[in-house]
Design a binder for these strands. Sequence first.
DNA 1: GGATCGTTCCGGGTGATCCCCCATGGATTC
DNA 2: GAATCCATGGGGGATCACCCGGAACGATCC
Lengths: 224, 224
Amino acid sequence: MTSPPTVVLVDDHALFRAGVRAEIESTATGAARATVLGEAGDVDEAVRLILDREPDVVLLDVHMPGGGGAEVLRRVHESRPGQRFLALSVSDEPEDVIRLIRAGARGYVTKTISGDELIAAIRTINAGDAVFSPRLAGFVLDAFAGRSGGEITLVADPELDQLTDREREVLRLIARGYMYKEIARRLTISPKTVEHHVSAVLRKLQLSNRHELTRWATERRLVD
Amino acid sequence: MTSPPTVVLVDDHALFRAGVRAEIESTATGAARATVLGEAGDVDEAVRLILDREPDVVLLDVHMPGGGGAEVLRRVHESRPGQRFLALSVSDEPEDVIRLIRAGARGYVTKTISGDELIAAIRTINAGDAVFSPRLAGFVLDAFAGRSGGEITLVADPELDQLTDREREVLRLIARGYMYKEIARRLTISPKTVEHHVSAVLRKLQLSNRHELTRWATERRLVD
DNA sequence: GGATCGTTCCGGGTGATCCCCCATGGATTC
DNA sequence: GAATCCATGGGGGATCACCCGGAACGATCC
């Protein structure tokens, strides 16, 4: 075995960071498991820490104030495109998973994972492979079936990306419950134009009314 | 100082339990802070453990498979009505807070709390007082302003409880985006009757349209 | 027995939504 | 230059959402 991988912990919950650190650094087996180079509790701190310490793997919480793990991923990616990330989340929502994978995470496991499983996942990521919880593996493989070679391909949301900017803008307001007239006032356009955009959105997303649209948007966390 | 309080940890995330245990049992200050009698990762295990070990305080996660922390609270309450609970959650949604307080928790703090703050909260709960995160304190006081004496009063949801069973049923389907006709088919009643129920719900909840109703329901997690 | 309430319906009305048709100007593509 | 797409508008009409009043039946309560 080579030297243990180095990691940086990013999570806004100090108690959770303490738990990961305790599990990772425990030498119950006698062998060192991984080395924690530092911890961060918010996005800015995380980006600075990662660029400074250059860990083998970053353990990254999905839900954080200031943009979440995806924001950390994007900003680090600009400077260190090779940085490896393992996303840790309480959620196994397909939308959350997709978002992080698109942003460049090489793995995604839920926080129900055990310490030993986490160490194994960190080693796998460090070796350049991908890691996913069993119940997510099938889903992820389906969604990214057409990806190329070993490089990470940013996969577009096949549904949302076919909408124009204006249509997404209208969609956001529809999902918040505004009427056509109110949306028209806010965008300083005619209610008829709003109607046209809504119609286009419904057609493109293959939905039949604005109520389904509201559900569609909330399920993808496009509002609130 | 008397002997340190004893606690049981209930959370489906092993890593988080490890973090809490590490913080609680650390003797950096030289003095023992609290004693962990055991950990549980699901509802059944938690109920057995709590009734067996009889800890001073139970640290209880809100979101857990098998009914969540509220289920643990209810089942323990039947056998040990005096058991003290401190709810730990990633959420500060008023609905989650209300649910746990109604079920009998004496305190509710988010997982962003530090180890020292957690120890302080445990001690406060053990002394018989209530503990809430600063941003929740005002809200909780408002909601339970009319409670009696020192005993915990189960407070009904003043808004949802004024709806009849049928109205709640219709509300659920409205929130899911179904049209009146579809709801009528599902409940095998006339669209006019659906209309009547929706009207009653809107009036009772003081809402003006079904979009606000959808938002109201999703905010209280009555759907999905 | 009378009052109240929940559930089930009806007709009628107004405004909102959603669909079809259409047109213009601008940007991009071929 | 023609084709395509997007954003901006409009007319008209069918459907839906919401509200009004009324009414019948059963259960419950006093």
